[in-house]
Amino acid sequence: MENSSIIKIEKLVKRFPVGKTEFTALNDISVSFGAGEFAGLVGPSGSGKTTLLNIMGSLDSPSEGDVDVLGRSVSSLSHKQSAKLRNHHIGFIFQTYNLLPVYTVYENVEFALLLQKLSGSERKKAVMDSLEWVGLTDKVKSRPSMLSGGECQRVAIARSMVKRPEIVLADEPTANLDSKNSHNILQTMKNLNRELKTTFIFATHDEKVMQYLNRIIFLEDGKIVKDNLINDSKN
């Protein structure tokens, strides 16, 4: 664990109603993440990886327990406060990129900043910096349909990083990519993690991703079964 905790989870329980009964997706989870971590939640389908990612991203709230993200208790946040937290402090990377097809690479990345009150020149600088990190400055005017899967995911990374968030949550970011592109993407994220001290938390069961992680938390049936710190992860 590096530096102080930016995510602190204690005795988290998450239940979902299933008909007249309830399904417990997460049970008694206690874990913390420090600034600059490059960690992964690993486990089979239904183990609770995405649910945990949701709660850390303030997309969902716990049924029981405390989840503090950057000093804010997720369960006490209003919809507006949750949105603000995501908008300013948390980046998301999806398995299927989810770029807006009618907008250019530049505009897709810029969109995250439109909700913040930044001047045009501030936005431009942030977008170009972000695209430079992912090596796509030559594609600013391209539409997503003109890009490869790897390039699309790099745009998605740039979009998640453009607002310089403290935390990036990525759900199976390499699931749709071939091996070469997966490694490129992971290397890019690793570099960003190192240079900008951004905390990356993945939900994955991809072996390639695990090679890059410096912490792997194994989940099974909604419980943490192992929490491994790895010192010799790639780069």
Binding site: G57, L59, H79, K80, A83, K84, L85, R86, N87, H88, I90, F92, F94, N98, L100, F111, A112, L115, R159
Partner: peptide, 10 residues
Amino acid sequence: GVRLALGEEK
């Protein structure tokens, strides 16, 4: 959905 995730309010 993406816009909601990126922090835009409903």
